[in-house]
């Protein structure tokens, strides 16, 4: 009988080689294998070679606080010399019938070197906040960028966190009718090319970080005539804040006064993008955008992962 698999989890190892196992809602590992041909005039391809094998991982998780404690805005290198020493992806084998399999029938894909970067963070009024993380694997110069072990146990415990959309403030004004927001980190990296005599990439680095926040809002009066006239307003860490409220297992929310929630401040330029979007039988919305920027001292986006929930931000 064949074997089938489903979503497992991801594991990050700290400098002491202690692993934290984090639940994910989707994981994809792409091989990015490139094959080149001879580009001759022959009718059929006559000479093919693998010229690049370049695994990348993309995963989405609701464990926003935990992941942001590992990966900063500027990314996080993975390797023996760094603060994150290893990254694993676990894929769980499905049982023949209804029960989860015990023992060691699962698959582990291990990465010892590479770069973790933030992809996007979004929060919606109806759902949980979700963070997408990218990983670019590289070789240590000797070994393949990925090693697969078929026959591991499921890690335990696997961390689960959930966060809900909290009250945000933009440019000093609270937006209680926010429908959703999405923060694209827009991190560009060096082009990956194989090291000489290899099909594996041996270096990766962050070139630029250009985060953009998009806010969809129900209260279209928040987009004032003054803002339309100026077409922009400044946003600073002192007056622009996103909040994520930590949900409680077997409850609703964790105590607002506990330092378990997430506060995110942004500096940049607030601009209107969509002034009114209205249709029959639907609530009208508009859309604002903040292109984050360096204020001369601080990173464009600051995460506070042990924040109390502020009912009157900023």
């Amino acid at each position: 009988m064949g074997k089938q698999y489903t979503l497992g989890c991801v594991s990050l190892y700290d400098g002491a080689s202690a692993a934290t196992h984090i639940s994910a809602s989707s994981i994809s590992i792409d091989a990015n294998t490139q094959v080149s041909g001879n580009e001759s005039g022959s009718f059929y391809e006559e000479f093919q070679s693998v010229v690049q094998f370049d695994p990348t991982v993309s995963f989405t998780s609701k464990c926003v606080g935990e992941l942001l404690s590992w990966i900063g805005l500027a990314g996080q290198c993975v390797g023996s010399a760094f603060d994150v020493t290893r990254f694993d992806v676990i894929t769980r084998q499905i049982a023949d019938c209804q029960n989860a399999l015990s023992g060691t029938p699962h698959i582990r894909d291990r990465f010892d070197d590479g770069l973790l970067t933030l992809g996007s963070l979004g929060a919606d009024r109806q759902g949980d906040a979700a963070l997408t993380v990218m990983f670019d694997a590289i070789t240590d110069g000797t070994n393949a960028p990925i090693t697969r072990t078929d026959g591991v146990a499921l890690p335990s415990p696997v961390l689960a966190q959930r966060y809900a959309l909290g009250l945000p403030a933009f440019g000093g004004t609270t937006f209680p009718d926010t429908e959703n927001w999405s923060l694209e980190f827009n991190i560009s990296k060096t082009e990956k090319s194989p090291s000489l005599g290899s099909i594996w990439t041996d270096s990766i680095g962050v070139l630029t970080v250009r985060p953009v926040l998009t806010i969809r809002n129900r209260d279209i009066s928040k987009l004032t005539n003054a803002l339309l006239t100026a077409a922009s307003d400044s946003a600073s860490h002192a007056d622009t804040k996103l909040q994520l409220i930590a949900r409680e297992n077997a409850g609703s929310f964790q105590d607002f006064g506990d330092s378990v929630h997430i506060g995110i401040t942004i500096a940049g330029l607030l601009t209107p993008q969509n002034i009114v979007n209205a249709a029959s039988n639907q609530r009208a919305t508009n859309e604002l955008r903040i292109a984050a920027s360096y204020d001369g001292t601080n990173a464009p986006i600051l995460f506070d992962l042990s924040s109390t929930y502020d009912t009157t931000p900023p």
Binding site: G79, R86, R110, D140, T142, A144, D150
Partner: peptide, 22 residues
């Protein structure tokens, strides 16, 4: 010493085919 000694993957049951190709 840890910083100077690369951590090499252990328990490699199935090396990728790409290893041989390269």
């Amino acid at each position: 010493e840890e910083l100077e000694t690369p951590v090499v993957g252990t328990g490699v049951d199935h090396p990728f085919v790409a290893t041989e190709i390269e």
